[in-house]
Amino acid sequence: MRRLGSGSASASDRGRGRKALSVDKASQPGFSPRAKVLLVEDDEELAGAIIDALAKRQYEVLHICNGSEGLSKVGEGGFDILVIDRILPEVYGINIVQELRRQNFNVPVLIISALDAVDERVLGLEAGADDYLIKPFSLEELGARVDALLRRPLQSSATKLQVGPLTLDLLRRTAFRGDEKIELSAREFQLLEYFMSNAGRLVTRQMLLKDVWKFHFVPQTNVVDQHISKLRHKIEGGSTSRFFLNVRGQGHIFDHHG
C-alpha cells in the first residue's frame, strides 16, 4: 500500500492526536477505560477512524504501524484485545497471531483484512484469531465485534439472563415475560439468548449470522431482520414493552427500552 504524501501525514497526526486524547481521558481521575486495545494497522487514515470509533466506546487504544513493532508490543503484555491488520509491513498480522498463540498468550484477537476469499478467513482463524472482519467494514461493526470478544468469558457462566421483565432460563430453555411464558422455537431461543447476553449493545446482522447461525456469508435477501421481527412480535406482542431498537443500516440494540 502506498502512503499519500501530505494527506497521509495529516491523517497520521490526527491518528496520534486521537490516541493521545483517549489516553489523556484515561488518565483523568474518575475515568476508567473499559479495556486496552492494541491496534496494529499500517493504513493510518483507517487507523485514525478506528481509534476514533473505539475511543467513543470508552476503549483506550494504542496504535502501531508495522508488524515487528506490533509483535514486540504484544510481547510486553497489558492489552485486553488485539485488532490486527492481516497484511502489514515487516511481519504479517497472521504471523503475529501465530507467534502469540505459540507463546500461550490468550488475549482475544480480531483480524481485519482486505482479502476475503474463504481460504483467507479460514487461515486467519486457524492461526488462532478469534474473529475476522473484512475491509471495508462499518466502524459500528468493528466496535460491536470488539465488545463481543471482550464479553465472551462472562457469558458462559450465566444460567439465567434477565432484561427488564424478560427472563431466560438457559438450563430449562424457557422464556418468560413477567409470569407469562413465551413459546419460542429453538432458533428464536438462541437469538433471544444472544440479544439478552449482549443487552444494551449493538448486535449486527453479520454477528447474528456468524454466531447464531454459524454461516459465513451474507445472504442477498435480508433474512435476519425477518427472524428478528418474528421474535419481536412474540416477546413484545400484546404488551407495551419495547425491546428492540433498530439502528438503521447497522443492526439492533436489545434492551428494555420501555
Partner: peptide
C-alpha cells in the same frame, strides 16, 4: 481487492464518522 478495498474502506469510515 486490496487496492480497491483500502481506499473504499477509508471512504466508508469517513462517512460513518
Amino acid at each position: 481487492a486490496h487496492d480497491l478495498r483500502t481506499p473504499l474502506g477509508r471512504v466508508r469510515a469517513h462517512l460513518e464518522q
